[in-house]
């Protein structure tokens, strides 16, 4: 098993905690994957120095530097916002593929299965994470909602 660099461990713990928070609320997500749950998915967040390795069957996610060679069955590449949008069903995977905003390599069927499983799950990663924090999630949710509502106002204040 590949080990991530010690300095990536905090980030990896956060990613793993988020994955488990989502899975706790949507335990059925990976049922749709069938045999593809055993696949290793490389998620390459192109605007960061990292890649994520998602192993659904192990309910695990790992983080590596992009420069490191990581063994995977399939790879999905895109910007952070594009991949986050895709994970939450906010973007159409085919359209993002047509526009070249995402690229895929390796086992195409495995990628398709993951896309379909996530699309059906109706995820909201941020709110699932807040829920997992229990009592402490409430002020964070309030802050997040306030930030979203204030964002256009703040943007407008600094607009040219």
């Amino acid at each position: 098993m590949e080990k991530s660099l010690p300095r990536l461990r905090p980030l990896e713990h956060l990613a793993r905690w988020t994955l488990h928070a989502v899975l706790d609320r949507h335990p059925e997500i990976f049922d749709r994957l069938g045999d593809y749950a055993a696949c290793r998915y490389l998620i390459d967040v192109k605007d960061t120095p990292f890649v994520l390795l998602l192993i659904p069957g192990e309910r695990d996610i790992r983080i590596h530097l992009r420069s490191k060679e990581v063994r995977a069955d399939a790879a999905i590449r895109g910007s952070f916002m594009t991949l986050a949008q895709l994970a939450q069903g906010g973007g159409d995977g085919d359209a993002l593929f047509f526009s070249r905003d995402i690229t895929i390599e390796g086992d195409t069927e495995a990628v398709l299965a993951l896309r379909n499983a996530l699309d059906d799950a109706d995820l909201d990663i941020i709110h699932d994470s807040f829920d997992a924090l229990g009592f402490w999630g409430s002020p964070l949710r309030f802050g997040y909602r306030a930030f979203k509502e204030m964002k256009p106002l703040i943007s407008g204040m600094f607009a040219p």
């Binding site: 069903g89 906010g90 973007g91 159409d92 995977g93 085919d94 359209a95 896309r115 699309d119 109706d122």
Partner: peptide, 10 residues
């Protein structure tokens, strides 16, 4: 039917 929710909604 092979497209995602975002496509269908739009």
């Amino acid at each position: 039917r092979q497209r995602g929710r975002a496509y269908i909604e739009a």
